[in-house]
Design a binder for these strands. Structure first.
Length: 194
DNA sequence: GGACCGATGTTCT
DNA sequence: GAACATCGGTCCG
């Protein structure tokens, strides 16, 4: 499978967030592929976005958001969870896309072992998919055009199936509809109220 | 299915 | 001290 080029990530964050739907997020664990199709994303639009980690600046833990596009920004939160972002726009922008849900595809046995949950609970949330794919702090700043953690072409999602809503798990910034997901996909994380 | 709530560590005020 | 881009257990339907 073909990896999108660096230029895919250099584009506006909302465009990348939308077009990541249907792409495959993949890992190689002990020589075996573990992957899933991206079905839910959220855009975090840099220092001007009040809920983005980038408001803390390029010297904060969000430093990778200001790095080269097409790299991973993995952060640790709530004392026990990792979440993964894809850095977007030209270097220095501080923008990224949070991967919120996958449809598990390859290496499901490994995901079951990592998660110890039912198959419907493998990758339907940002911290869950990180656990399923064994993504942690070690993969922070990893190049997604590399061969440890990467993104490659997957499926084509019809435009009519892409839904746009407010982001999840934030208190401010609810007026922006910067979350995208594939309508009808059972792996999309729980639907918030508005 | 939903509401509530505790876990647990890093970062920032 | 508080906040936190979350999750899973418990209790209630």
């Amino acid at each position: 499978m073909k990896k999108p080029p660096r230029s895919f990530y250099t584009r506006p964050t909302l465009t990348v967030a939308k077009e990541l739907l249907g792409k495959r997020l993949a890992r190689k664990v002990n020589g075996q592929r573990v992957s899933g199709i991206i079905v839910e994303t959220e855009a975090y639009r840099g220092p001007i976005d009040v809920v983005s980690h980038a408001v803390h600046g390029p010297e904060s833990k969000a430093a990778p958001m200001f790095g080269e596009p097409g790299h991973a920004y993995v952060y640790f939160t709530y004392g026990m969870h990792y979440c993964m972002n894809v850095v977007t726009e030209p270097t220095g922008s501080g923008t990224a896309v949070l991967i919120r849900a996958l449809e598990a595809d390859e290496g499901i046995e490994i995901m079951r072992r990592n998660r110890q949950r039912s198959d419907t609970e493998l990758t339907n949330g940002p911290a869950k998919l990180c656990q399923a794919l064994d993504i942690d702090k070690q993969l922070n700043r990893e190049d997604l055009l590399g061969n440890k953690l990467w993104i490659e072409d997957g499926q084509t999602v019809p435009k009519s199936a892409i839904k746009q809503t407010a982001r999840v798990g934030i208190s401010q910034g609810r007026e922006h509809q910067w979350r995208y997901y594939v309508e009808g996909n059972s792996n999309v994380s729980a639907h918030p109220k508005y």
